[in-house]
Design a protein around this nucleic acid. Structure first.
Lengths: 236, 236
DNA sequence: GAGTGGTCTAGACCACTTG
DNA sequence: AAGTGGTCTAGACCACTCT
């Protein structure tokens, strides 16, 4: 006679989300099989299956026939597919390469710190310039909570796809990101870095990237030179 | 012994997509029940259910407990939820209101005509200016194949949400749209319509909107004044 | 061959809607 | 009360992967 019990499979999803957030399984590692989970949790295998399929549909899990159910692993390909929406003028997908980066600690900014759950600490700022087909095309500023990335130093050698670093060195898997896009005249530093005439129109993309638990891992501002890259998304 | 039979539920999905595309059910109308479809097609009710749920997940169908399975109907709310991604500077969702429109026939443009499947005919061009909270914020140019919209005339009174018109007067339900976003200095006509200083940076969104059958229904170019509206999307 | 997820079926019961 | 979709279970078989 519980008043409003959520469906069993939804409870199973919540249990699994919690166990994932607690770090029970590492990225790339297999979860127990459907039957094993069903035994542990005390529901039928069909109910576990429904929960796992729903989570796979949200990209919280990878399922592979004959192998098992796995914690998603960020590969450059996966990052490209899920979180990179840049295309060249001809429409082909684009993954810009890193050409310059600096890592610094900056004073807290209330809005950023709050979103990151970083209290009043100083936070990391990663400045990167990336190029597409040899042309400087992106200026990115990423902000991180240092408490979430104990290994990071100003000298760290970061990979082209930051999310692989977040996963390998912080244990944080980005599974969702919200981009808010606008246009503005390129600020002087951006124009200089991208080798654009002063005042050229560029896109500004502000992103909040979150992990399985809904915790914001990174806040990023990207300026995109439209002459070489545009942002593409399909709505349903 | 068929060489590579696709799963039954996928075949059921294809059958239903074909029947939808053929116009067997109107927007807002109910499909037969799961058991009725299972009998018609000759599979079990569970297989029909899997197909219907998968199609509902793609927004090709609406399912309502106790009522039935329905062809999706474009309401302003639905359009807002699925295909409108504008937010105000404070982050609240925005649906701009129409303030000016003209409908003209223009000469064929090879690229547009090809995408619309409009042969070498003249095509319709709909110019609209829309405002958000009283401020002109969007300039939109939509292109349509006249063969798909026999009712349209230069005097037609179009609703704020064009997709409701497409559905009611052309029988075309938009279920998917691809937006490609960039930034540019506002062209003179756009700057004038939006009351912006010459050369202000604006976003340019190019959209292809498609129906259930994958046919492109509309091509749209929108210039968005970033001072009042930004484009938001969540990636997974 | 053993173990995994994928498909298909079947039946029971629940929750919601309508008459 | 009858009809709809939603949940939950159970079992059989298939396809894929690894040893």
């Amino acid at each position: 006679m519980t008043p409003n019990p959520s469906p069993l499979y939804a409870q199973v999803m919540q249990i699994l989300r919690d166990r994932m957030a607690a770090g029970e399984w590492r990225a790339g590692q297999a979860l127990p099989s459907e039957f094993a989970l069903a035994d542990e949790i005390g529901v039928s295998q069909g109910t576990v299956r429904k929960a796992l399929n729903a989570m796979a549909a949200e990209n919280l899990l990878d399922r592979r026939q004959g192998k098992g159910t796995f914690m998603p692993e960020h590969t450059p390909q996966r990052a490209l597919y899920h979180f990179f929406r840049l295309v060249r003028p001809d429409g082909t997908p684009a993954l810009p390469e890193l050409i310059r980066q600096t890592i610094t600690r900056v004073p807290p900014e209330p809005a950023l710190n709050k979103a990151l759950g970083a209290g009043r600490r100083q936070i990391w700022k990663i400045d990167r310039v990336r190029a597409l087909d040899g042309l400087p095309s992106l200026v990115e500023q990423s902000y991180l909570d240092p408490a979430a990335f104990p290994d990071l130093t100003p000298e760290t050698d970061l990979p082209n796809a930051l999310y692989t670093y977040y996963q390998a060195h912080g244990g944080h898997t980005v599974v969702r990101a919200t981009d808010t896009l606008g246009a503005e005249a390129a600020p002087p530093e951006v124009a200089k870095a991208l080798n654009l005439p002063k005042g050229t129109a560029v896109m500004l993309a502000e992103r909040e990237a979150q992990d399985v638990a809904g915790q914001t891992i990174e806040i990023r501002r990207s300026w995109i030179a439209t002459r070489t890259a545009r942002y593409r998304v399909t709505l349903k």
